[in-house]
């Protein structure tokens, strides 16, 4: 029995994912990183993008927002503001959210708000990218 990683993805609303997996690919701030069991302990930031989870039987895809990840030899713990499995992404709603955010950015708004809107724009873009890539799946 090969070693496994315990992957946990937690958002403020729920525990989105909690399973033993073979490998995880994450969109870290310095580029995509693949994590296998017995990885050295790392703390790093995540940018909005796609997580690829490989378990024995299958591959799963999730879109995530920005966040932090704690990696140790036997677990990967992710705190993020958003995480949605590819099959649950509602493309129409994500597209709508993207357009809303883009429209909001064109208006005159404060710096604080720009940051918020940019974050939500990045979240919807991440969802759309993941969904469009796996449309067939």
């Amino acid at each position: 029995m090969a070693a496994t990683l315990k992957l946990e993805i937690v958002t403020p609303d729920a525990i989105v994912y909690s399973k033993d997996v073979q490998m995880v690919t994450l969109p870290a701030i310095e580029g995509q990183i693949g994590i296998l069991p017995r990885h050295v302990p790392v703390l790093t930031r995540l940018v909005p993008g796609e997580i690829i989870v490989r378990t024995n039987e299958e591959k799963e895809f999730l879109a995530i927002g920005e966040g932090l990840v704690e990696i140790t030899g036997e677990r990967v713990a992710i705190v993020t503001d958003m995480a949605v499995a590819a099959k649950d992404i509602d493309e129409a709603r994500a597209e709508e959210a993207r357009q809303r955010a883009a429209a909001r950015l064109r208006d005159k708004i404060s710096d604080e708000e720009v940051a918020t809107v940019n974050a939500s724009l990045a979240r919807s873009l991440a969802q759309l990218r993941v969904k469009r890539r796996h449309r067939g799946a």
Partner: peptide, 8 residues
């Protein structure tokens, strides 16, 4: 006391 890597 495990060493932790910070990226970046």
């Amino acid at each position: 006391r495990t060493e932790v890597l910070f990226e970046p």
